[in-house]
């Protein structure tokens, strides 16, 4: 069950202020980095919903995001829908596909769930790769961004687009929090804790899992459409399983099941990647080592570690404050 704490609000405030500062002060390259962080943040938010709160470790979220990008591109360029309608359409398509994947995989657990989602992701990758209408290996170009000139915003300007993505992230975050605090989110937590118990209480477990997976897909599709708008060009590489793997890495680096942590992870990952690749072509090596160290340390990522440290300091007053609970029946 997701709860906001003072520390979480504080970190969110710092992240928000940092993003705004960067959006208004950075040059072209800085804005590109910011946009990359924001889109990745939306993706990992969606992934944390299923992996962190539902225990559904998905290796298909990269592919779902790629599908979102393709759906947006197809709907806007080929079908000719206005960009905002194409955005909504892409979210709906990815949401529906994710719901189906979630429903099918709901019976699998542990490594089988990971493999099953990987299979669906790879299926999408192969399909896109091999179908000529999607441009095959060459991908597709000429993707347009929504036209908001009616309200005086030109999204072809990097700064405006960065702010557009930031607004998108805020919306996605609020949506994720609302879902996790709803009846559905509570049931998901119950399932994560004990699927058997929830079933014995009369809950149709697979429906809850599928619903959450679908909602997560909706957000993932949103991230995908933004990614397509951002680079204005898409290729099957977007759906590669290593994208899903990296998204999982970001969630873990940040802190699984904290929602705020993955945002921190996204910032850390993108900055680390850019800083390292400027120095060495072997930045994957460093990321790999960092990942291994984080997992071995058994801390719940950067944010989880910080939260535990802060919790440890407060533990004395809260412990003393615990009321003696009556023992009689």
């Amino acid at each position: 069950m997701f709860r906001h704490t003072t520390f979480r609000y504080l970190v969110l405030a710092i992240l928000g202020a940092g993003a705004l500062f960067q959006a208004f002060s950075a040059g072209y390259f800085g804005l590109e980095v910011l946009i990359e962080i924001l889109i990745l943040a939306i993706l990992v938010l969606a992934l944390d919903m299923v992996a962190g709160f539902g225990g559904m470790v998905s290796l298909c979220h990269g592919a779902l995001m790629g599908l979102g990008a393709y759906a947006y591109a197809m709907l806007s360029s080929i079908v000719g829908l206005p960009p905002l309608a194409a955005l909504v359409g892409a979210m709906a398509i990815v949401g529906a596909l994710a719901w189906i994947i979630g429903a099918i995989c709901a019976r699998s657990h542990g490594i089988y769930f990971i493999m099953a989602t990987l299979a669906f992701g790879q299926m999408a990758y192969s399909y896109i790769f091999q179908t000529p209408i999607f441009g095959g290996d060459d991908g597709m170009g000429g993707i347009t961004r929504p036209d908001l000139s009616a309200i005086g915003i030109d999204l072809n300007d990097s700064r405006s687009f960065a702010l557009f993505c930031l607004a998108g992230l805020v919306l996605a975050y609020l949506a994720a929090v609302a879902v996790l605090r709803s009846g559905l989110g509570r049931s998901l937590c119950g399932i994560h804790h004990s699927e058997e118990r929830m079933r014995a209480l009369g809950l149709t477990v697979w429906r809850v899992k599928a619903d959450i997976f679908g909602l997560s897909g909706l957000i993932t599709g949103f991230a995908g459409a933004l990614a397509a708008m951002h680079v204005m060009y898409i290729s099957p590489g977007l759906l590669d399983w290593t994208v899903s793997g990296e998204a999982l890495v970001v969630v873990i680096l940040g802190g699984l099941g904290t929602l705020v942590g993955p945002l921190v992870g996204a910032v850390a990952f993108v900055i680390l990647k850019h800083e390292l690749s400027a120095v060495t072509p072997y930045w994957h090596l460093v990321v790999g080592v960092v990942l291994i160290v984080v997992v071995l340390s058994r801390a719940n990522g950067i944010f989880g570690w910080l939260e535990a440290r802060i919790g440890a300091r407060r533990i004395f007053p809260t412990h003393a404050a615990v009321k003696k609970v009556p023992n009689d029946a």
């Binding site: 470790v57 490594i111 291994i292």
Partner: peptide
Amino acid sequence: GPMAQVLVTFGLIFV
């Protein structure tokens, strides 16, 4: 758990 193993060996792939 399988999650930690998948991640550590995923890191190992990079390395």
